[in-house]
Write a protein that binds this DNA or RNA. Structure first.
Length: 579
RNA sequence: GCGCCUGUAGCUCAGCUGGAUAGAGCAGCGGAUUUCUAAUCCGCGGGUCGGGGGUUCGAGUCCCUCCAGGCGUACCA
């Protein structure tokens, strides 16, 4: 909060000193070492370089025009031209008091509210969800939640794989080797078994492959029986997806699968051809990007030589539909890194097709999931870890620790707590990593319950709640009411000061998360916040403090709990009262 | 062949427009509990940021080159 204000004062000062300067390039950031101050500005050195002036002179000139309005003393010029700001404790406690009055929770609403479509998770019908779906699902959910909190509007869309050549094999298997009882019990597992079995048959027997193709053609041409089977495959799969989403607390505004766009595909290809965007090549219809250095050798196919459309066509139709229906400012796709080329092609083709579009297209890609041997998971033949079993295992491990640490809790609480701890651990382990690095899957890491993990953050929260259980709720009500009109928070100890400084950075971090679609920044922030709180907790007794100090510390605890809870919520992680 | 990505402590990873002495967790070792939950806190050791060159006040970060690995590269999605 204070940083935003300082930044804006500084930008004003730069503009009055140098009217031609670009103020958006004048930024401040927290100092890496507190001995320099609280915030630093490095931008004046770049500004000076552009003007071929001495950076320290430029800094001095800017300082002449700078008015911080009581946020801190005039900054020092250090080294080659850093500006070091030291904020006043008054300014800091003022922001804390504002927050305690309920005016904000250390973040600001954006100047312009935008609308987004976020495309994530996208599992395939007739396949179980496995660890490979974690990243897209959790990242997408977290990005959506963060956008919404900042006031943007979001349509989350689960673009499920409910159409394609795999249905030929599935239909063939459904009719020949389906085990009805197994289907009843575990529908998706049974469909997956059927698919694998048919796949094997196809490898050995050409006639089976041919029969599968026939089933596919019949489905595509609207055959009633195949259509009905296909529909039940979707229904059964979606039932199972929904159970997992419910468990993981993930939700979608719409679930429009690939098949939803079938009716648009043929006309779309014709349109592209008429516009001279797509052309015939080797029997297929292609979009060439001759003036595009990177895509020059990578044309996009919008129609196969057999006349069928493919996923490029569907994605174009999908994007068109999204723009027409929701008029988003930005569409964010959360998929794995291997689809980078596909999305570059898609975006380039779409822009050629719709030259007037203003929509921003973002591919928020993430690294592959690797096995413990460092090799990627194989979707067809290799073993995968089912998502539902991973969640079970994590909850089970959390349960064991609860039995060990806090066995006197009532049974029902134990169940709730182990669920939230277990799920939180899995989610956090994933979100903590920069999405762009490959993911080395390990049980140990995924399910770790100490160190930089969700349980650590949840634990910090329960310590705060434990303090509040020990005070009279009526007293607390009085303090809250008093806090509306009076400034109750006084920052005296170094630990209080550090904790407050961390709290006010919440908004800075949320904006960074949005800008880069990277919730790992939020994870790091919350871990540091919990660390600051732990130090505060060790050194600043709350309940035994003098009345004024006690009120202040209770208020600090309350704000910390709120930020922890809100931050964890953005990661899709719930807090618990005890653990 | 071309393109994209990765290479940072024993292991797993952070490192924000290029910024000040490269940071966490785990593992190891040593401390702290008559105290609001020790699922905690404090301390110690541990690095040629893959190699080399360049740009500049300043490079883990940008450019070039080499090495190693991964992924993609027209009829799977």
């Amino acid at each position: 909060m204070i940083n935003f204000k300082i930044e804006s004062h500084l930008q004003k000062a730069v503009l009055s000193a140098y009217p031609d300067a670009d103020p958006t390039r004048i930024l401040i950031r927290p100092c890496p070492d507190p001995k320099f101050g609280d915030y630093q500005c490095n931008s004046l050195m770049n500004l000076a370089k552009g003007m071929k002036k001495n950076p320290r002179d430029v800094a001095a000139e800017v300082l002449k025009h700078l008015d911080l309005g009581g946020l801190g003393d005039s900054p020092e010029v250090a080294g080659p031209g850093f500006l070091n700001f030291r904020i006043s404790r008054n300014a800091l406690s003022h922001v804390m008091n504002e927050a305690f009055k309920g005016e904000h929770l250390f973040y600001r609403k954006p100047e312009a509210v935008k609308s987004f479509v976020v495309d994530f998770s996208s599992p395939n019908v007739a396949k179980t969800m496995h660890v490979g779906h974690i990243r897209s699902t959790i990242l997408g959910e977290s990005i959506s939640r963060t956008l919404r909190l900042l006031g943007h509007s979001v349509v989350s869309d689960n673009h499920i794989g409910d159409w394609g050549t795999q249905f030929g094999k599935l239909l063939y298997g459904w009719k020949s080797i389906l085990d009805r009882e197994a289907l009843e019990r575990k529908p998706v597992e049974e469909m997956e078994r059927v698919y694998k079995a048919v796949n094997q048959q196809c490898e050995q027997d050409e006639t089976v492959l041919e029969a599968c193709r026939n089933e596919l053609v019949r489905l595509q041409s609207g055959d009633t029986e195949n259509r009905k089977i296909w529909e039940s495959m979707i229904q059964l799969s979606r039932g199972e997806f929904d159970r997992i989403y419910q468990r993981m607390d993930v939700g979608f505004d719409v679930t429009l699968g690939e098949s939803f766009y079938n009716d648009r595909l043929i006309s779309l290809v014709n349109e592209l051809e008429d516009a001279g965007i797509a052309e015939e090549s080797k029997g297929a219809r292609m979009v060439f990007f001759n003036d595009h250095p990177e895509l020059k050798n990578n044309p996009a196919m919008v129609r196969k030589k057999d006349g069928a459309a493919n996923y490029m066509t569907t994605d174009l139709a999908t994007l068109e539909y999204r723009e027409k229906t929701w008029q988003p400012d930005e569409v964010i796709y959360v998929t794995d890194s291997r689809q980078q080329l596909h999305f570059k092609q898609l975006f380039a083709a779409y822009r050629r097709w719709k030259p007037d579009t203003k929509v921003k297209l973002t591919h928020a890609w993430f690294g592959s999931i690797l096995g413990e041997d460092g090799k990627p998971f194989k979707t067809r033949t290799g073993k995968t870890i089912r998502l539902s079993l991973l969640l079970d295992e994590s909850i089970e491990r959390a349960r064991e620790i609860i039995e060990q640490k806090n066995s006197e809790l009532p049974e029902e609480s134990k169940e709730d707590i182990s669920r939230e701890i277990g799920l939180g651990a899995v989610k956090y382990a994933d979100l903590l990593q920069n999405r762009q690095t490959d993911y080395t899957f390990s049980w140990e890491k995924m399910l770790a319950l100490n160190g930089n993990t969700a349980p650590y953050l949840q634990y910090a929260y329960t310590r705060i709640r434990s303090i509040f259980r020990r005070i009279d709720p009526e007293d607390w009500k009085t303090i809250v009411a008093q806090g509306k009109s009076e400034d109750l928070i006084i920052l005296e100890r170094e630990e209080e000061f550090q904790l407050a400084k961390q709290l006010i950075h919440f908004g800075l971090v949320l904006e960074k998360v949005i800008e880069e679609c990277r919730p790992n920044h939020l994870c790091s922030y919350l871990y540091e916040l919990a660390g600051c709180f732990a130090r505060f907790y060790e050194h600043c007794p709350v309940l035994k403090a003098e009345p004024a100090e006690k009120r202040s510390r209770l208020a600090i605890c309350d704000l910390t709990a709120k930020v922890l809870c809100q931050g964890l919520n953005l990661l899709g992680i719930n807090t618990v009262e005890q653990m």
